Simulated assay, not measured.
Amino acid sequence: MPSPRPIGIVGGVGPMAGLDLVRKITAATRARCDQDHLPVTLVSHPHRIADRTDFLLGRTAINPGLALADLADTLITGGAEIIGIPCNTAHAPAIIACVRERIGGRAEFVDLIEAVADEIRHRFPDARRVGVLSTTGTLAARVYPDRLGPLGLDVIAPPPSVQETDVHPAIYDPTYGVKSVSAPVNDRAVAGLRAGLDHLVGAGAEVVVLACTEIPLALSMTEVGGVPMLDATRVLARALVRRSCPEVLTEA
């Protein structure tokens, strides 16, 4: 087997999502023993990273991309050749541009949104209506419409009433949201996310992207009513393994 390229993960966005990505990288690796697994370094410094949605909605002037870039730099200095960030909202252009500029040509950045777009094209080539379940920041920044639209895909999101009453609190509420209560996830958070998911399926989505890396911690189903779910964290994990050492990537 060729020597794998070391993977660096900028975690802390949120912390449990970073751990989930490491778990899914391990699950996507064909290995017979410990030594067959890939070299992965996770840096999780959430206290240094401003909230992505707060920045995109104008609630803070601190661009979280600056801290993400610093942490990516730390990983590259430590030997990482491939960088991944398990946060959909962080891939908004205003944020991720800081990371791309800092990385330059020193390492390969695996873009989560691009990986999801590739997955949709390869696995669901006939799909035209894509549901996106995400944070309000991801929706406001048009992270998915601006990337999937040029591919001929229509993006469906929950209506504002469902997004603000059910979906976003299920992620962010300090008493029951997945960011604050994730082991196990609170039933109220599951119900809020399920309300958004049911709307997307009812609105005619042909595939639904779980487009916040906290959401797969709460929703583990692979399909609802015959509509497939795409776990963006799992998609990123497989893309990172493929870049590191494609020979060990498990079958999808």
Results as ranks from 00 to 15, higher is better:
residue 208 V to L: 11
residue 58 G to S: 00
residue 143 V to K: 06
residue 37 H to E: 09
residue 123 R to P: 06
residue 119 E to C: 14
residue 52 R to K: 01
residue 101 E to V: 09
residue 20 D to V: 01
residue 103 I to H: 07
residue 225 G to K: 13
residue 86 P to S: 02
residue 31 A to E: 12
residue 110 V to T: 00
residue 181 V to N: 12
residue 158 P to V: 14
residue 112 L to I: 10
residue 223 E to Q: 11
residue 173 D to L: 10
residue 168 H to M: 09
residue 245 C to V: 10
residue 213 T to A: 05
residue 102 R to I: 04
residue 76 I to M: 05
residue 153 L to T: 06
residue 179 K to W: 12
residue 117 A to W: 06
residue 151 L to G: 07
residue 182 S to G: 14
residue 223 E to L: 03
residue 103 I to P: 00
residue 48 R to E: 14
residue 109 F to R: 08
residue 195 A to G: 10
residue 73 D to Y: 04
residue 147 R to H: 14
residue 45 H to D: 11
residue 46 P to C: 07
residue 180 S to K: 13
residue 108 E to C: 08
residue 151 L to Y: 07
residue 83 I to L: 06
residue 116 V to Q: 01
residue 200 L to T: 12
residue 115 A to Y: 05
residue 207 V to K: 08
residue 164 E to H: 15
residue 236 L to S: 06
residue 162 V to L: 13
residue 88 N to A: 07
residue 45 H to I: 13
residue 97 A to N: 07
residue 211 A to L: 00
residue 142 R to L: 03
residue 64 P to L: 03
residue 153 L to F: 12
residue 54 D to R: 12
residue 182 S to Y: 15
residue 213 T to R: 03
residue 81 E to D: 11
residue 122 H to A: 15
residue 40 V to T: 08
residue 180 S to N: 13
residue 92 A to W: 11
residue 80 A to K: 00
residue 28 A to T: 04
residue 184 P to I: 14
residue 190 V to C: 10
residue 208 V to Q: 10
residue 92 A to D: 03
residue 210 L to C: 08
residue 27 A to F: 08
residue 16 M to L: 14
residue 11 G to V: 04
residue 109 F to S: 06
residue 25 I to E: 02
residue 9 I to D: 02
residue 248 V to G: 06
residue 58 G to L: 01
residue 222 T to Y: 09
residue 203 A to V: 07
residue 195 A to D: 12
residue 123 R to W: 02
residue 140 A to T: 01
residue 245 C to E: 12
residue 159 P to F: 12
residue 87 C to I: 02
residue 65 G to H: 06
residue 116 V to R: 00
residue 234 R to P: 02
residue 55 F to W: 03
residue 171 I to N: 08
residue 216 P to T: 12
residue 184 P to R: 11
residue 212 C to P: 05
residue 20 D to E: 14
residue 111 D to C: 06
residue 90 A to Y: 11
residue 250 T to V: 15
